[in-house]
Amino acid sequence: MVELVQLLFAGLTTGAVYALVALGFTLIFQASEVVNFAQGEFVMLGGMVTVFAMKAGLPLPLAALLAVLVAVATGLLLHRLAIEPAKGATVVTLIIVTIGASILIRGLAQIVFDKQFHALPAFTGDEPIRLLGAAILPQSLWVLGGAAAIVLGLWLFMERTLLGKAVRATAANRLAAELVGIDTRVVLALAFAVSAAIGAVGGILVTPITLTSYAVGTLLALKGFAAAMLGGIGNPVGAVVGGLLLGLLESFAAGWISSTYKDGVAFLVILLVLFALPQGLLGRRAVERV
């Protein structure tokens, strides 16, 4: 029982971060059909900028805000300088552009910051909370709560604001959206900015637990992509479900099967799911546009 609770919380915490990355993937994918492999770099920027801003003397909230702003600026630049100019290229070409961008961002981070690992202090102390005999980190609750707040905020934005509706309209049918006067370029830029902000917040929340360095983005992008696909890409609910599921799979695989094969269990499940449901768990059975 103790072990079960322990693994559950470990899995949910990791899964929440995967979910945020997957959500970023989904947002950009919805607006542009681009799979943005630089998504993990936003998470890296969130953590690294906060670390260095705090070293420079800023308090945590300001440092975190600065980190989100840096990530958003990076996201907008990525859109303006790499995605816009490559508009109309094939899916694979666009994937490679974003991979190039992720290598570039990582390379720049390595120069601007450094190559070492860094930690952030936990927001509200390191003293574990006892729950049914398991030790839960207060920071885990921050991650889970933060992720939940983001998901809720995003949902409200999409459902309740005009801008959010414009994003959804663009996702549904770009041409029609343009015809009714939506500037789809702005919508796309917005998608990149929001994705970057979500990723950065995830990075800030999780750095006190997992540590960060200039190179943490690649693996997160991979896992986030897998999570988005598991849930069915283009579906925000699917992204969150996929992320949490992936985190739980890894945690329980590490605890009960083999810690070295935990990444494998997750991908094995993805393969099996896709063999059975070629559109992901919650994917739309839509026509492909390749």
């Binding site: 322990q6 470990a10 693996l219 590490a254 605890g255 810690s259 070295t260 990444d263």
Partner: peptide, 16 residues
């Protein structure tokens, strides 16, 4: 005798 892969960010299952 527990092991973890390089790059792992959580070793609580092994420590348990």
């Amino acid at each position: 005798d527990e092991r973890y892969a390089p790059g792992d960010t959580d070793t609580t299952p092994q420590l348990n």
